[in-house]
């Protein structure tokens, strides 16, 4: 009895330490985004003496918030939409058509996850440049390519848990393959879809490297690219950068808290008999 209580407290202490580690970056970003530039360097950990909301105003102006925010949303939303459409339909075909080629293609798709992005980025951008597919359309197209592997992998696993007899029932009810998928199978993949949406939002929304290589037009820059402009060669406007970061993090955080239940469901779906 006593031993189990000690164990419980030890675990709690570890948990708290871990939570502090975890939360501290968020705290630092949020805390310092309300300070003046000078205060930021003299008291980095302490709370701000006076909340500088002006930082946010200035950051919004410097970021070109309206434009970059819209660009980021557009890129993220469109990329995820087509990743979902393409990867769910491909996974459905690969899982339901039982041929050797299906297995081969599936392995091919999933193996692509192992290729590090950095290994292909230079030739990729060069080739896309040649066919004039840079900026937002090119970016979305590239995200589709990079995002489909994980999408297909997750959907393929989830589809195994959806009995073939549902497809059969839908066919007898009058559905063709297309409608069977969209009206019957796809709604059942909801937990997986949410998981993919969350993972991809965190990836695409926060991505800096790929947009920095692909986007070269002024009006097409994303939030993450704009934040980088706070770090000039001679001046580093930390207070504005941190305010900008807070603006950039917030939508993802809110979304994550809203759907976290679904994510867990998606990850454990199929693990136990319902």
């Amino acid at each position: 009895m006593r031993r189990s209580r000690i164990k419980k407290y030890t675990l709690a202490v570890f948990g708290i330490i871990l939570a502090i580690f975890w939360i501290s970056p968020f705290y630092l970003v949020l805390d310092n985004s309300f300070k003046t530039k000078k205060e930021l360097f003299t008291s980095t950990i302490g709370l701000p003496k006076k909340i500088q909301l002006g930082n946010y105003r200035q950051a919004a102006v410097d970021l070109g918030l309206g434009e970059s925010f819209v660009n980021t949303i557009l890129i993220t939303a469109l990329s995820i939409l087509i990743i979902i459409i393409f990867s769910s339909m491909s996974a459905y075909a690969l899982q339901r058509v039982k041929r050797k080629t299906s297995t081969f293609l599936f392995i091919f798709f999933t193996a692509a996850m192992l290729i590090p992005f950095q290994a292909v980025m230079i030739p990729l951008v060069a080739e896309f440049g040649k066919v004039k597919m840079l900026n937002i359309p090119g970016l979305i197209f590239m995200y589709l390519g990079f995002g489909c592997s994980l999408g297909i992998f997750l959907y393929h696993g989830a589809l195994k848990g959806i009995p073939q007899s549902l497809d059969d029932a839908a066919r007898i009810d009058g559905c063709g393959r297309f409608r069977t998928f969209w009206l019957i199978v796809f709604p059942m993949l909801k937990p997986t879809t949410v998981t993919i949406i969350v993972l991809d939002i965190m990836w695409i929304w926060n991505d800096y490297l790929l947009p920095s290589l692909v986007v070269n037009k002024q009006g097409m820059r994303t939030l993450q690219l704009m934040i980088f402009y706070f770090f000039g060669q001679y001046t580093r406007q930390w207070h504005l950068a941190l305010a900008g970061l807070t603006i950039a993090i917030l939508p993802v955080l809110i979304f994550y808290f809203l759907v976290q239940k679904q994510i867990v469901k998606g990850i454990i779906s199929g693990a136990v008999k319902q």
């Binding site: 009995p163 007899s165 549902l166 059969d168 029932a169 839908a170 066919r171 007898i172 009810d173 009058g174 559905c175 019957i184 709604p187 059942m188 909801k190």
Partner: peptide
């Protein structure tokens, strides 16, 4: 769908995201 048949499956094959009414009305 054009054979004018209906089938009942071993595992029922009901559409889980639809109500009983919608399941029956779907076809």
């Amino acid at each position: 769908k054009d054979r004018d048949i209906a089938m009942v499956f071993q595992n029922y094959a009901l559409y889980p995201h639809m109500s009983v009414f919608d399941n029956m009305a779907f076809g």
